[in-house]
Design a protein around this nucleic acid. Sequence first.
DNA 1: GTTAAGCGTCAATGTTGTTGACCTTTTTGC
DNA 2: GCAAAAAGGTCAACAACATTGACGCTTAAC
Lengths: 143, 143
Amino acid sequence: MPDTFDDKDPRRAIERFYFAYRAFTAGPDRLLEARGLGRVHHRILYFIGRNPGISVGALIDALGVSKQALNAPLRELIERDLIRAETSPEDRRVRQLSLSAHGQALEAQLTKIQTDLLGRAFADCGGDATDGWHAVMQRLAAS
Amino acid sequence: MPDTFDDKDPRRAIERFYFAYRAFTAGPDRLLEARGLGRVHHRILYFIGRNPGISVGALIDALGVSKQALNAPLRELIERDLIRAETSPEDRRVRQLSLSAHGQALEAQLTKIQTDLLGRAFADCGGDATDGWHAVMQRLAAS
DNA sequence: GTTAAGCGTCAATGTTGTTGACCTTTTTGC
DNA sequence: GCAAAAAGGTCAACAACATTGACGCTTAAC
């Protein structure tokens, strides 16, 4: 029997997914924790980075949390000058959120950790494997 | 430009990973929540299923939680007759944990939800894609 | 027989989320 | 122009879940 025996055992797929995801999130988690930030902050940074000018309400909907839960971490990020909140000129009730220069730098740093990790794995496994990975993950994400 | 433009943008890989993992965990989470259980209970069931006869201390180490944090959910699972705890004959201080018939059934049900989801994605994407997925995930998990 | 290991539990505390209520500012509809 | 509604902020009460510290119990080891 080859040493790839039961290499595609469905249970093995579950474990691979679990441990791969852990490795995938460990890097950013460490960097954030060193700054006293958590995953909520990361998600806030990420969403605002992807949607500059987003309103607080839209961010609440996007993250699926209550406004009270968002308030504290968002305020921290604004106080640390990682996120900028400017009153919208069209509707002065609305605050337009965007990343400051520092916020962009941190977000880029966090993203780089993950893209580097993925990039190394893709490079090691080859283009076909990379294509297959993308196809399967795309299919799963659409579930 | 083809509609697969920037289909392998590193940022897209991050998003795919995130949403694929959410889909991967959503099914078990729903089933567990319907029974008033959480992810801790799932992890306990899983580890004991993989390591029948494991001791409480070893389980604490494996899960990386304090014994006080483990105590409550573990007790629930024992009271519900999902997990069996028997005194070790060699060392009567030690309790050997194992899944009861009900526990095995629940664990199998949880696992099936995930293997079915993965199996459908693998079937849709083909054998080569499946191989690639496994290769990349294996590589990541080893990081 | 004293020491240590494995386990269980009580207490105090911290974090993080929730809902409900109330407030201000600003826009909108009549 | 004025009442209603929307966007946002904050306070309070509460619940879930984790932590550390301390203590007690049973059993094994030297």
